[in-house]
């Protein structure tokens, strides 16, 4: 796994973006950028050569699930690994995210270990 890959963190709460950014730095990923909802994230993704997307679900503007669907519908972006980190914990929602093509789903509140494990899993599968 390339620790220098460009990662986009999308969450409407800046505290959560900082938490994820710091956890990623702890794991050796320092090349991160942030966006506060799907509407600002999508143009960044389309123009930015990102290799990994971590997104919240519940956001004003464009929700994480719609961002995920937009990514999967975009020829250039459809292969982008997406990890959802969200407080949305209804079964139906997790199923919907899975059907939309999410690569991992972390429910808040989460631990550093959980985040690391999901990221590792995603890139093991991507590499395989």
């Amino acid at each position: 796994m390339n620790k220098n890959m460009k990662i986009l963190i999308v969450d409407d709460f800046s505290t959560m973006r900082r938490i994820i950014k710091n956890l990623l730095r702890d794991l050796g990923f320092t090349n991160t950028q942030e966006a506060d909802d799907g509407l600002t994230a999508l143009p960044l993704l389309q123009s930015g050569n990102f290799e990994f997307l971590i997104t919240d679900w519940n956001m004003p503007g464009m929700q994480g699930i719609d961002l995920l669907k937009a990514v999967r519908a975009d020829d250039k972006l459809k292969g982008l690994p997406v990890l959802m980190v969200t407080a949305e914990s209804k079964r139906d929602q997790i199923v919907e995210a899975a059907q939309a093509g999410v690569n991992g789903y972390v429910v808040k509140p989460f631990t550093a270990g959980t985040l690391e494990e999901k990221i590792n899993k995603i890139f093991e599968r991507v590499a395989a």
Partner: peptide, 16 residues
């Protein structure tokens, strides 16, 4: 310090 970092996740949860 990592524990402190993660504990701040309450702001997102309670904000919602």
């Amino acid at each position: 310090l990592s524990e402190v970092l993660l504990a701040q996740g309450y702001q997102d949860i309670t904000g919602q």
